[in-house]
Each structure stands twice: as C-alpha cells, then as structure tokens.
Design a protein around this nucleic acid. Sequence first.
DNA 1: CTTCTGATGCAATCAAGTTGCGTCTGTTCG
DNA 2: CGAACAGACGCAACTTGATTGCATCAGAAG
Lengths: 157, 157
Amino acid sequence: MRAATPESRRSSPAAVSSAEQLIRATGARVTQGRILVLEVLQAAGRAMTHHEIEAAVAGPLDRVTVYRVLDWLTREQIAHKIPGDDRVWRFTIAGQKQAHHHAHFQCTDCSQVICLDDVPTTLRPRLPAGYRSAGVEVTVKGQCKSCVRPAPRRARR
Amino acid sequence: MRAATPESRRSSPAAVSSAEQLIRATGARVTQGRILVLEVLQAAGRAMTHHEIEAAVAGPLDRVTVYRVLDWLTREQIAHKIPGDDRVWRFTIAGQKQAHHHAHFQCTDCSQVICLDDVPTTLRPRLPAGYRSAGVEVTVKGQCKSCVRPAPRRARR
DNA sequence: CTTCTGATGCAATCAAGTTGCGTCTGTTCG
DNA sequence: CGAACAGACGCAACTTGATTGCATCAGAAG
C-alpha cells in the first residue's frame, strides 16, 4: 500500500497514509498534527466531536492545535463541520459524493452523527422572494443502533 | 377579542392575548415572563436568539428567566429550539403544521433563521440497519433577502 | 387572607471555542 | 548539508452562550 513518496521519514510502520498524501496535495505544510487528526477522521466512520478526536489522536496534541487543524481541514474542504443539537461541532471527512447535497443522521439520545450518503436530496424548496439558496441540508433525527434497544447512552456533557 | 378570563388584572390595554390563553391551556402558571416571551415570539415571524428575545421583551426580564421560559416553552412544545451554525439557539413558535416535518432557512451571512412551512419533506431516507427515524429536518442554506444584495450584515458575535 | 409550590433574580460556574504570543519546525534556498 | 523564513504549535488567558444554586417573590388554591 506504499505510495509514491520517495522515503518515509517517520518510523511508524503504517506511514505515508492517504492522509499524508491528501494534505500534501493542498500545498500546505504536512505536519504531525494534520496527519494524526486526518487519520483519526478517516478511520472513524462517523462524525466526531473535538473531544473525541483529541482523545483518539495517538500523540498528545494540544487542544488548540486540534481546533486549528480541524478549522484548516474544513477550510480545505477535506473535512465537514456539522452543528449538533448539543451545541458541539462535529467533523467528518468530506467524501466526494458529499460535495453539495448529503444527509446526516443525529441520534436524539446520544447526539452521535453519521452521514447518510444515499439520500436523494432532490427537493427544491420554494423560498420567499429575494432569498437565494446555496444548498439543502437534511438531518434525520431518531435513535441510533446503540440507543434504540439497550439503555440509552446519554450524551457526554 | 376578549377571552373567557373574568377580569384582566393587568393594566395593559392589549391584554389577554392568545399567548396567555396558550399558556393557561398547559395548566402551568401564567406568569409575566412567559406571557412576554411568548408574545415576542408570536409577533416575530422568524426564529429569534435568546439575545434578540431578551432585547425585544418589554419589561426587564432576567437573562436566566428568559432561558428558563424558553426551555419551558420548548418542553411544552409551544416553541421550537433550532441549532444554528453560530452555536446559538434560536426559537420559534411551533405552529400546528410544523408538528413533525418542516423546513428552516438559515442565512450563511447573518445566521438568521426563518421557517419554511410549505416544503414537502416527503423524502424517506434509508437508514442503516437498527436505526430508527423520528423525523426529518431540512435546512436550506443561502442568503436572505437582506444579505443577498446590500453589504452583508455580519452575524452578531 | 393564608399557604404552598413553583417561578424569578442574582451571582457564581461551566464548557466549547477563540486569541495573543513566544517558540518550534517544515520547507526552501544557497 | 546548513541557514533562513513562514507558518504551525503549545501555553495561558479570554470570550460568551448557557446552566446551576439558592434565597426571595408571586401565582393559584383553599
């Protein structure tokens, strides 16, 4: 799975991930923080909060750095920033099919967010005169797999 | 438009509003704070932040009281709590047609939110196995009337 | 009018997120 | 390879929307 990069300067055996390539492609600096955070996001199949990401990152990365990396990833369109019902941002890797329209699912019990890729958000709502639409966000509310049957996991707050 | 209430104990000429009736119907106490906040929400045709509501209320109501009234209104299903892109809650009166499905519009410039009542949110997205849907929220992103043409009003923050 | 429950006001507190600044480190260039 | 520079990082302080504890006040019932 080795990529075209000439040599791995890092000792980690799983080095030169697609994360690193993705970051390098932007032309910006390829730093440890960016690689680690992006790898975490890629590994997770769901939207993660800043807290979760910070905890999941291997090396100890500063709170603020994680915020800044996430902000940068969002600006670079690599990640996607989602407002939740608990006033906490969540982030996911922005896949290509999620370019303009795609839907999210948010659990009303544990606030977890996942992406729903196969939702045809073809509806074109009628806006009041003078308003301009730039896209539609669809969020399905309900209970996730983990909360629908067992005792609901309450949101961490 | 006078209601069945025997006597208005308040000096305000426009007394015994539908707000007061609505609150009385819940069986809970009819207090000044609740009336004032609900009247503000009813008068506004859009979603308001806590700040806006506090400013719009006539008598000086404590910050915390406004929070608590809004919380109560939301629990009572009279109001509707909307998470925005600026980490600020917004509230609207929950009309009957907005019972389960209805859409919001949020301006990407000034963060203002309005309700779109006539959006047929008939889409029924396919969820992963084990997930249970409890409703769909549709949010249209774009520019509002005030921000589409003149210099954009930046969000208050 | 009295009583009682629950709403209110005030102050303190919380937590997610942001900012300023000095230091460190990728990257480039010689 | 080593120096130089811009940009990223770490730390601490700060901002702000929202929440909580507690003493007091005020609807509603009797």
